[in-house]
């Protein structure tokens, strides 16, 4: 049990955490301990969009550079 495998430092597990809000029924799925605020959710979304844009741009860049490096000869091929 370490911090790296997702277990909290005190050795407890997320699904063993007490239901502090008292809404959990026996047998019901465990409530996760981390709830994002609206601001955190909004910022995570903007980070995700930025990563998507960067990855898309990299794909375009690699495609264009490949065409440039291969040159017009890439179109000359036996059919």
């Amino acid at each position: 049990m370490t911090e790296r495998d997702g277990t909290p430092p005190d050795g407890s597990r997320r699904d063993a955490l007490p239901d502090t809000e008292g809404r959990r029924e026996p047998g019901e799925a465990p409530v996760d301990g981390v709830v994002l605020s609206e601001e955190q959710r909004r910022r995570r979304r903007s980070r995700s969009v930025a990563i998507a844009v960067v990855l898309g741009a990299l794909c375009v860049l690699f495609y264009v550079v490949t065409i440039v490096k291969l040159g017009p000869a890439v179109l000359i091929r036996p059919l």
């Binding site: 981390v34 994002l36 605020s37 601001e39 955190q40 910022r43 995570r44 903007s46 980070r47 930025a50």
Partner: peptide, 8 residues
């Protein structure tokens, strides 16, 4: 305290 607040 909690997940990241970092913006783009």
């Amino acid at each position: 305290d909690g997940p990241s607040y970092a913006s783009v």
